[in-house]
Design a protein around this nucleic acid. Structure first.
Lengths: 121, 121
DNA sequence: TGGAAACATAGACGAACATCGATGCAGGTG
DNA sequence: CACCTGCATCGATGTTCGTCTATGTTTCCA
């Protein structure tokens, strides 16, 4: 049994990276679309995860390993790994293992897709 | 004792309606800014509240009362009132009482301000 | 081959949350 | 005044979430 935290990839969320999604104020939001969008937003609605995204984006080469993020965030290593997994499952980060280290990088356009569903203009 | 759910107004969130906020991928997100933005996003990260925003926006005149929202949402009246209060406290909705009814309307630019903090372009 | 380092996973625990029924409150109406 | 309607608040409850410690897994190096 594997407790999937944010099964976004499988449920095909309301926001598809790479294509513009209609804002929620333009057309009525159905039950399924609301749940999918809420799941994506829930992955962002945490101070630690927001800072992780910002820190990864600001790091050299646009990627960072767990050891770079643990200390400045002030959280334990397992907790940081947990948050990174949530962000990966939600489609905001990619994970690439090189040697002993795991490097995380932003998924291009993922944040913009979410922003597009919220913007009214 | 009053259990304040989302004391955004008092804490002066990261997103100020009406002015553009720098995206989290542009400059490092501090601890305070991350908490403030997370609180705003937490108010959005719920299927019922997303549908409420969409339904209010789609309603005649851009406003709707609780009685218009309860049945199509499939939730009890207290629950709908609770979600509307969360959205008002977060700065996404305004509440205006006319007679027996309470009318809710979108705050112009509130969703766009949040979208601006997420967009990378 | 053994050990150390980096990271992931498991289990536990307290806090926060979504929802409900019951109740209180204000505003219109007979 | 009494009553009804629309809405907010209260208290309770089951669930989800964030965090930790402890442990497992993988990779590299002596």
């Amino acid at each position: 049994m594997t407790t999937v935290e944010l099964p976004i990839r499988s449920t095909s969320a309301a926001c598809c990276v790479g294509e513009a999604c209609s804002p929620i104020t333009r057309e009525p939001l159905g039950s399924g679309g609301a749940t999918a969008l809420a799941t994506v937003l829930k992955a962002l609605a945490d101070p630690a995860r927001l800072r992780l995204l910002s820190m990864v984006a600001a790091h050299d080469g646009g990627e960072a390993c767990v050891c770079d993020l643990t200390e400045p965030l002030g959280l334990s290593q397992p907790t940081v790994s947990h948050h990174l997994k949530v962000l990966v499952d939600a489609g905001f980060l990619t994970r690439s293992r090189r040697g002993t280290w795991a490097y995380y990088a932003l998924v291009p356009g993922a944040l913009d897709a979410v922003a597009g569903t919220l913007a009214t203009v």
